[in-house]
Design a protein around this nucleic acid. Sequence first.
DNA 1: GCTTGACAAACAGGGGGATATTGTCAATCC
DNA 2: GGATTGACAATATCCCCCTGTTTGTCAAGC
Lengths: 208, 208
Amino acid sequence: MTIMSGAVPAAAAGGQHRRPIIAAAIELTARSGWPAVTMARLAELAGVSRQTVYNEIGSKAALAEAMVAHELERFLSVVGAAFDRHPDDLVEAIYDAVRAVLELADDNKLLRAIVSATHGAAPELLPLLTTEAGALLTQAKAVVAGRVARYRIPLTGDRVDVVIDLVVRTVLSHVMQPSDTPARTADALAWVAARVLGVPANPPLRHT
Amino acid sequence: MTIMSGAVPAAAAGGQHRRPIIAAAIELTARSGWPAVTMARLAELAGVSRQTVYNEIGSKAALAEAMVAHELERFLSVVGAAFDRHPDDLVEAIYDAVRAVLELADDNKLLRAIVSATHGAAPELLPLLTTEAGALLTQAKAVVAGRVARYRIPLTGDRVDVVIDLVVRTVLSHVMQPSDTPARTADALAWVAARVLGVPANPPLRHT
DNA sequence: GCTTGACAAACAGGGGGATATTGTCAATCC
DNA sequence: GGATTGACAATATCCCCCTGTTTGTCAAGC
């Protein structure tokens, strides 16, 4: 072991090649579809050897999970940014976060490649967003809970967790099956959050 | 055309064989898996000719949709029963309905056969519950909206629709990915509904 | 209104051989 | 040490051919 190097906060540390490899895999999946992603092509695109891909990732199933985790990180980072923008108005933060997530989902090539692959062309990726989304939900809820904890809320922790579960699941549902514009969906969710969190008056609508 | 016969309220009227055929298909799918469902076997099990199956259903893709619609009807009927039980307490009705739906989902053979088919063994049924759940959501929301309209709620129709969308999506999410017992999830959702719908005081918790 | 039998077209399955891919090693290079 | 390279067995994938099944549609018959 060396001198502990940079001390990354959390998430599987992994070598310095890990992230570029995953990014290349996402790019490749979005462009040519998941079946076209072979470890050899991936290594070539990432500019590393095939062995390095195995050292950093492990297996193709692990690659699928890593891709989803990587993409989830992007979504959670825009969530974090939204919360940063409203350090003392949780409802505004929620509106911003939800809207940002749904807009990001709209023009997310990987997501569209996975979901709209005519008929289940990604029988290894889709489950991670649908029938096996448990891990995803858990991670998302944990991050959001950490953010929400910084606000003063007149509710017990249990009740706050209920609201978080509700919002996260609903947002994921809208990511997969939007039924309105991101702005309007965010508005709806923020309104619900306001009422549930006990915000004094009805906040003004942002979008008709 | 005959004399209009029984005048079924809504839903594709269909011949008198339609429902038994769909029920047989569900039974067969739950028992042997979707791939084992052939029109011939289905006809035999339903006690009709293969031609009748085609006359009533149309195609195998239509059969998949009909099965999901049929199962959705069962879920919506327990929802209706729950609402009937609480004609003047919407929050209690929601609690009952959500709990009943989640409990029904728990021991629903078809659902478990579709979702837990190790790895996407039903590439024609699963999408109807996940990536193409739009129709399902629409139908469920319509039925719930019809029920909710019978209560006096201090909210505009738009806001009520928001709450319905939220609850329906969250329940579907929990049907696919439960994170707690039906009772506790129902309790959580009912509590949220109570706060959003502007119910005066905090109703007592039903389950710890 | 339902059944029966017949039908073309498309589809799933099996066998077999070539090819590609996965995942793991040890040797090598910088 | 970290990365690359080449080699390797096991497995998956693809293509072709063939066969049996299934789909979806007819018209005849009861």
